[in-house]
Amino acid sequence: MSDMSYDAGGASAPLDLSASVDLSEVRDWFALLKPRVMLLVVFTGVVGMALAPGDLHPVLAAVAILCIAVAAGAAGAINMWYDRDIDALMRRTVRRPIPGGRIAPRAALSFGIFLSIASVALMGLATNLVAAGMLAASIGFYVFVYTMWLKRRTPQNIVIGGAAGAFPPIIGWAAVTGGIALPPLVMFLIVFLWTPPHFWALSLWAHGDYARAGVPMLPVVAGPRETRRQILIYATVLVPVGMAPWFLGFASVWYGVASAAIGLWFLHACWRVFTDAQDEAGRSLTNDAPARWAFRVSLMHLAGLFACLAVDHWIFG
């Protein structure tokens, strides 16, 4: 296709591609923030704010939500900077901006550090130091504990590292109240226990990527059969833990019934993973179709639990 355009008189003129190039660059910088991960993180933080007693001015609440989103994105950018070597080896991640050569590693690191500092500082100015401190702790845990320490050393990386993604409900609650209480800790526990089966379902059908990159995910180290067993165990524990807000009195029986139904749905999906047809080595004979389905259900499971918490709070107080 020609890169020339024509004016009204028919004379040729260069076609200005700057707008499309700039838009492509913006997409790459936005991709550094891991926006799909950010959505669920922000949603759990918003629910933490919604359930918190007290009032926060809508403008300050919007700023707090923005800070949670930016902090999650900043941690994602630093993670992509640090993991650029293994990202280049995995089919799932090889097209990311840094291994794809579209963003320089040092620029990505500077971007992540700037957003980290800015989000924590703004949270402290807009709300309180407790919320800002918890936000800083979530970034530090994801970057230093999970990304730099656990991910390449132990198959328990997701189990322990899952705490990083469980902070937002506590941050949202602290933004409103200036403190921490039992309800956000329960929400933290829900996300913490949800994270391993969610990521292990993904790792079952992406284990080849992790093996090539030398990342000791559970299917690589312990095998797919043990991974399926662990997924089922965690999903079983999640059913009563998901109902805990009702047991502990800060949600109604309506939430208890809804959370049980959602939890049993996820448990059934994990049971299908556990009973998937396997060869002698435990490898799936169905191209890990149940694991792919369980991964999608896990996303709806967590979003559903927190949505039910929010609706229950708005209806029943």
Rank of each mutant, 00 (worst) to 15 (best):
P183E: 05
P196F: 00
A211L: 14
G208Q: 07
F188W: 13
V191D: 06
L202W: 07
F199W: 02
P197M: 05
P196E: 00
A211P: 00
F199S: 04
I190K: 08
G208K: 08
A206Q: 14
F188E: 10
L189G: 15
H198E: 11
L185Y: 07
A206W: 05
A201D: 13
S203D: 14
P184F: 13
T195N: 03
V186R: 00
L204R: 13
L182A: 14
A211F: 02
F188Y: 13
L185T: 12
V191M: 15
T195G: 03
A211H: 09
A206H: 11
A206K: 15
M187N: 07
F192I: 06
V191H: 09
W194V: 08
W205L: 13
L204K: 05
P197C: 06
P184C: 07
V191A: 13
T195I: 03
A211I: 00
L185N: 07
L193F: 14
A211E: 15
F199D: 01
F192H: 13
Y210N: 04
T195R: 00
W205F: 15
W200Q: 00
P184L: 10
P183N: 08
L182Q: 13
A201Q: 12
L182V: 15
W194R: 11
P196I: 03
H198I: 00
W194L: 05
M187V: 06
T195D: 06
W194A: 12
A201Y: 06
L185H: 10
T195W: 01
L189V: 13
F199A: 02
V186G: 01
P183I: 04
I190H: 09
P184E: 13
H207G: 05
L182H: 10
W200A: 01
L202G: 11
D209P: 01
D209L: 00
P183M: 05
H207W: 14
F199G: 03
W200F: 02
L189E: 11
G208W: 08
D209C: 01
W194P: 10
A211Q: 04
L202S: 10
S203L: 03
P196S: 03
P183L: 02
W200V: 00
S203V: 04
W205H: 15
W205K: 13
H198M: 06
I190W: 09
S203Y: 08
W205V: 07
L182E: 14
M187W: 06
H207Q: 15
L185F: 12
W205D: 09
P184H: 13
V186E: 00
L202V: 14
A206D: 06
T195A: 03
S203E: 05
W200T: 03
W200S: 03
F199V: 02
I190F: 09
S203G: 10
P197S: 05
F199Y: 02
V191T: 14
V191I: 15
P183H: 05
I190A: 07
P197I: 00
H207S: 15
P197T: 11
Y210C: 01
L204Y: 08
A201E: 09
A211Y: 02
W205A: 07
W205Y: 15
G208F: 03
H198D: 05
G208S: 11
L193P: 03
D209S: 01
D209T: 01
V186N: 02
T195P: 11
A201V: 05
F188A: 11
P183A: 05
L185W: 11
W205N: 12
L182M: 15
A206E: 09
D209A: 02
A211G: 04
S203P: 09
A206V: 04
